[in-house]
Design a protein around this nucleic acid. Sequence first.
DNA 1: CAGATGACAGATTTCAATATCTGTCATTCC
DNA 2: GGAATGACAGATATTGAAATCTGTCATCTG
Lengths: 200, 200
Amino acid sequence: MAATSPTPTPALTAERILEATEEVLRRHGPAKATVVDVARALGVSHGSVYRHFRTKAALREAVTKRWLDRTSEQLSGIAAGDGDPRARLRDWLRALFEAKRRKAGADPELFATYMVLADENGPAVTEHIADLTGQLAGIIRDGAERGVFAVPDPAVAARAVFQATGRFHDPGYAREWERPQAEADFGSLVELLLQGLRAR
Amino acid sequence: MAATSPTPTPALTAERILEATEEVLRRHGPAKATVVDVARALGVSHGSVYRHFRTKAALREAVTKRWLDRTSEQLSGIAAGDGDPRARLRDWLRALFEAKRRKAGADPELFATYMVLADENGPAVTEHIADLTGQLAGIIRDGAERGVFAVPDPAVAARAVFQATGRFHDPGYAREWERPQAEADFGSLVELLLQGLRAR
DNA sequence: CAGATGACAGATTTCAATATCTGTCATTCC
DNA sequence: GGAATGACAGATATTGAAATCTGTCATCTG
């Protein structure tokens, strides 16, 4: 009746630790989750976890990075498209808004972890923002080359667009995302920004 | 040697209580300031304070309202001007940014009180925002009538502009206001928005 | 010998007892 | 009699002792 582990001791990898950590964070939230919990979930001592991640903060950061990267990757698909840059910009901004809203609703505890990180300006968050702003700049540059947009500097414009839409992706505003008003507000803001970029 | 109070007992008015409360908040901050402190500062019992303000929250709110109204009034001067609406919009947005930044720096404790109120969606904050958005709508409507701006609905555009510039007036972003980048970011965002409003 | 362990010190969190505060109101004072 | 008071109950905050957690490292194990 040996219905036990087919792999007796599946080597302890960083990846396995990240999976377990994500699960623990989902269950307990960033305030309660401990490194000991993670170790227990893996059936190892907490010392072993510290062999792969120097601090608890590094572990939190790695989990959040993985989580954020999933969003970045989805969006990069839209950014890399070759349709009308205006439509692409609209779609991309909407996808960003939807993705954040969905994560906030479906994974409140991981989202709370992300908020902690955002609050303390963790490098993972800074990189995430740089990545997204880069994607935006790509769309805008493309639009400028095609003569659809007229901007002095696509990178600067991207930064402005990203900051202008902060209310619809910055985790600090998550509470507002469920209000009915949010949809209309998002729409009119995006149209205003598109007008601002438009070549005349 | 009666070197005591020239006015023996200057009647306890709501105004005097508000002044004392502002002072107490400035000194102790919203977390530590108590109604008993306010009463002590006035030389009365705390029961007397409750005769003028039904709850501590109402008192906090009244103080913050007064404080916010000072900013609104300053800005209304700019909004009511009759120069080029584009310049007026620029000036108004800059004045709002400057005012918030100055208050955050010069009066950190009162600013913290404001943040508490903003977090709990106090009516005073909602009204403050409605007032500011109204001023913005006035400038934009004026611009539209003069043919400088082209917008479907000034009130909707005002809302969009206000939300787009949130990073430069929303208290949650106060930390960012001292970064050197902030100036440039503010400038490029405002220009983008002005382009977006511009008649073509 | 590479990787895992668990005892350990110092930092942080929890918990319960204590103190303070909020808001009410019967009484007191001009 | 209208305003002020201060005792009071329940809610909230503070405090300090105990428990838990983080991060290190000498030791162990395969």
